[in-house]
């Protein structure tokens, strides 16, 4: 893509806030673009979409769980329910890439599993490959979620959860939902692995299986409450069936309740600001390593600078990048 074809970030932001689908698509393409000129414009776009509103509007929900738990079918059932309630939905569906030595390509199959048959203006799905990035979620996901929050009522990020990934998704979603599969070793492994404190809501799928689903639900209930984490949140375990379309409204009620809980406790904006900082640090570290971080004064200094610009850290991030690059050059 030549520079002439890159969109003007200010104008694009205006169109995105008007919820124009073509603008959303072109904004996501821009955020994915690694050319130097595109990066500048990306930062501009995100800055234009930032501000107080970005820290308080919409609901960003991370959905994770082991392969085969039926995440995509569940997301599909959830979308149907949200759309019936008149809420617009943006989805970022993340699938793994093949290893770099095998070409690094990816088959993105979530779209076909998630979408409903009919054409729907209120639903927007973007599939993403994780591109073998450490932790399983591509760094592009956070800025893309940010963009989608500007124009959809609900934004869902779906990832395959295999161990480490949950830690990343925890640094993205306002609410994290873990989808468990009844009678499967994965859930037990998960409970043992110590990352049980990450999800806010548990959905035990395939509840039509009966006893095994109830057993899994009670196993999770016994392990889940970790009162030390967020005061007064009850970590609900919800029985759902994506295929029978049962329990979805209850699951949504838990999501809404969790969001209200965060907002009432004054946690929502803080959480998003923290996630934003975590992303900035991750991006800088991935690109420049610890040495690069040190060039701008280390983690503490970066944290301080980001805190001062909590509603709009994307431009600060770009400034930090430029500083690191120029110091790299001068240290040659």
């Amino acid at each position: 893509m030549t520079q002439a074809q890159l969109p003007d970030p200010e104008q694009l932001a205006v169109r995105i806030l008007r919820r124009e689908r073509a603008a959303v698509a072109s904004g996501l393409n821009l955020l994915d673009n690694k050319l130097a000129a595109a990066r500048q414009r990306s930062a501009g776009l995100l800055a234009a979409l930032s501000g107080e509103r970005a820290l308080n509007d919409g609901h960003l929900i991370g959905v994770t769980g082991p392969p085969g738990a039926g995440k995509s079918s569940l997301v599909s059932a959830m979308i149907r329910e949200w759309r019936l309630a008149g809420r617009t939905v943006g989805v970022l569906a993340v699938d793994p890439s093949s290893r770099p030595e095998l070409g690094g390509g990816a088959l993105l199959g979530d779209r076909i599993r998630i979408k409903n048959a009919a054409y729907d203006e209120g639903l927007f799905i973007r599939s993403l490959a994780n591109r073998n990035q450490l932790g399983g979620v591509a760094t592009e996901v956070w800025p893309m979620s940010w963009l989608m929050l500007a124009c959809f009522d609900i934004v869902v990020v779906e990832t395959v959860g295999v161990g480490q990934t949950e830690i990343d998704i925890a640094e993205i979603g306002d609410t994290i939902c873990y989808v468990a599969q009844p009678a499967s070793g994965d859930t037990i492994q998960y409970l043992k692995s110590g990352i049980i404190e990450i999800p806010d809501v548990f959905a035990v799928n395939k509840s039509d299986l009966g006893a095994p689903a109830h057993k899994t639900a009670s196993e999770i209930s016994r392990s889940a409450p970790r009162q030390d984490r967020r005061d007064d949140w009850d970590y609900p375990v919800c029985l759902v069936s994506a295929t029978m379309n049962t329990g979805i409204q209850q699951l949504h009620a838990h999501f809404d309740r969790h969001r209200s809980f965060l907002a009432a406790a004054g946690l929502l904006g803080k959480l998003r600001a923290r996630h934003q900082s975590a992303w900035v640090v991750r991006v800088l570290k991935e690109e420049f390593g610890t040495f690069g971080i040190e060039l701008v004064g280390g983690y503490a200094e970066i944290g301080r600078r980001l805190n001062e610009t909590s509603t709009n850290q994307f431009e600060e991030c770009e400034r930090l990048r430029q500083q690191i690059i120029s110091r790299f050059k001068s240290s040659d």
Partner: peptide, 10 residues
């Protein structure tokens, strides 16, 4: 996919 494309199969 084998040669490196990211493929959305619809």
């Amino acid at each position: 996919r084998d040669v490196g494309f990211e493929v959305v199969y619809d």
